[in-house]
Design a binder for these strands. Sequence first.
RNA 1: GCGGGCGUGCCGAAACUGGUAAACGGGCCGGCUUUAGGUGCCGGUGCUCGAGAGAGUUUGAGGGUUCGAGUCCCUCCGCCCGCACCA
Length: 830
Amino acid sequence: MARYDPHAIERRWQAIWEDEGTWQVPNPGDPGFDDSKPKDYVLEMLPYPSGEPHVGHLKVYSVGDAIAHYRRRNGFQVVHPMGYDAFGLPAENNAIKTGEHPRDATWRSIEEFRRQFRSWGISIDWTREVATCDPAYYRWTQWIFLRMFERGLAYRTEAPVQWCPNDQTVLANEQVIDGHCERCGALVEARSLEQWFFRITEYADRLLSDFDLLESWPEHVVTMQRNWIGRSEGAEVTFRCEELEIDFPVFTTRPDTLFGATFFVVAPEHPEVERLAAGTGHEDAVRAYVDEAIRSSAEERGAEDRQKTGVPLGRTVTNPVNGERIPMFVADYVLMEYGTGAIMAVPAHDQRDFEFARAFDLEIRQVVAPPDSGEAPIDEAFLGHTAGEVLVNSGSFDGMPATDAKRAITNWLAERGLGKAAVNYRLRDWLLSRQRYWGCPIPIVYCDRCGIVPVPDEDLPVELPDTDDYAPKGQSPLAAVTDWVNTECPRCGGPATRETDTMDTFVDSSWYFIRYLDPRNSERPWDRRATDYWMPVDQYIGGVEHAILHLMYARFFTKALADIGELSVQEPFASLFTQGMITRGGAKMSKSKGNTVNPADLVERHGADTARTYVCFMGPPDRGGDWVDEGVEGVHRFLSRLWRLSEEVVERTAAGEMPGDLGGAARELVAKAHWAIAKVTRDIEQGFQLHTAIAAAMELVNKAYELKDALYDDAAGAAALRFATATAASLIFPFAPHLAAEAYESLEGERVWEQPWPEADEALLERDTFTLIVQVNGKLRDQLEAAAGAPEDELLRLARESENVRRHIDGREVVKEVVVPGKLVNLVVR
RNA sequence: GCGGGCGUGCCGAAACUGGUAAACGGGCCGGCUUUAGGUGCCGGUGCUCGAGAGAGUUUGAGGGUUCGAGUCCCUCCGCCCGCACCA
């Protein structure tokens, strides 16, 4: 008998799928489009092509492909595309080091990814492939940017950036490690530069409320996004500095504690700091403090257990509720990025204000107290989160429950024009400018006469020019390409210069799933007919590391594009599955640790089917797991067993109808096959339990081995064996498609992927007998065979007859009999 | 600190609505096949006592509800992930 030779099998089927374009699906209106099937869009996050694929890629695409295959065989028209997130820093850093153009390194890597994905037999519609660094793609990234610009959703403003004083360059967040430059180790500084932003904050509320529109997202991802958006309800209250006649609005979630404000703090970056300190005699101290604060990194400022610091400004503001003048401070625990960059400090009811008050010996006045207990001892801030607290020391509001007082005080302020109800978000606008070469150029021109001018659509794409110097020098490497930078103003024809920053790569990946649906369109970014049909993505699969940024940006883009009138859905991804990370020896795989597994080697040694099945079998796919080489062997053994079984069955049995009434071993095996169908179906359907689905297929194969020698003798047995083996192949197909196709073809003469997903026959799942569990006082005492439909009294009789049961009840009184028909009997004795 | 997840054999893990704890895989032990094997097939394997039948015991710790708890409720401990001076 032939040995299981994965390479020959895999080559054969991959060639068939390639030649026949098996996984290609037409769009509505295209020839061959089948509108009788419901659509299904299965998508895995696109890879960043760097070097060659690693096991993480093997896992996402194995899991995703299993789902795609499963859905196809359940009657769906499945689109399952692939592409490359091909702009980005690693290729550029490589260019700085070696001088090789990032484009060349990237395309070389894309070639390798393609080759390996094909060698894995992933069922991709390759006609839809895109790469974000291709001008035919980024032309439309620019087009979307321009539509956003027209709507005010893309805007330019001055903003602080991370600056490396040694390299004279702006750094992306990812390039700042613990406040230091990734490349030279210098302490990073904050600088202010003109930057482009997307106004994602305008969508904060919709990004929150539209979680309701999602079908199935992991709860923790929704929670992470919710926390990231960080919506807080409260009030904006105006404190006035009478001496300088400046109003200072603050945001607070606790307007009920307004009477407890005993001082006022502004952030070191606050624009009024210098004016406030001027002429107070505190100027020098304030300037020294502000300089120090601005120089230190966010890391240092936010360090845990750090003492509160700050300096007095020598000014006061007036508390609008009681007219009290309270002293002003500048302190770095107040952040310019959140709220208004200034706070009212209520030390009795805020931990940070409390610590500051302690350090500076300021008044701590309690204004909220539990209803009965009076005032709390002042050794820590009373945070007042339990229900029922009432106001104290709060003038006419005394005695009012704190929850009511929030509204009452806000209303009181609003009537007098001193404040209003307000909502604040932690979410900031999306800074998309990167002073980098290998990214999508921002299609904007600056003209002395016309100002900021968008590049007209017909001039897109603004192509990335070539250069040989990729090193950043305080501005984008593009700035040095003067031929390209100097251009004509599209509006007035006068001299103008191009924007030299490129876009954050998250922009490229915020809409790729739409482009897949109409990837060759050169007139428009996509045809609405295609997107109306295919969108949203029904099942999105990828790593948790993208739980916040990528997923939120893509949601934002989808909403913005819907508002612009280019899409008809509000949410891009109806269901999301996040897969866990594979480790080895308990540690993240890395070249420096030398614990990596190379998928190409793995496929070379065991074949793609083994590699794919193993990553799905390791454990719950959302949880990640530790790579064990022996485990791979185990899966390979299982696939070999299935292979040999199928060879043997083909050789020793003839194809034929299975008789309707089976008995003995034949019946047992057929019942097991139906059990496996039900189990695999339920496990895939309910929460991606792929590992237990594979275990069920293993059980079926084990049962066939156990019974096969008794089954070869008669036609009914042979038919049962053929059925069970073909079923095992059919069920393992989503995971090991090549082997399954080969085995199924030799057994049934059909292509397994063209067969509908098998259905479990309820009648065959039922057995004529079952194992009756007999307990005494809840302890297992015997296991008996009982007839399937046996009535309760019959089961009780059987149980009482058991010798072991009798030993445990003799001489005692049976006070209760619990019977669960078809399952167990429990006798309670005293 | 806030939010989320998790704790079960030697290891990865399983257990649908409370009903045989440990399916499946690995590892280990043994048998058979083989000239030989690191191949294949079969069997065993939570722990303790026992020759055995069997008994006791076991799901991070403690308590509770129940005829019956890995599963439900309360208290506590430990680990992992995300966010973090967000007013």
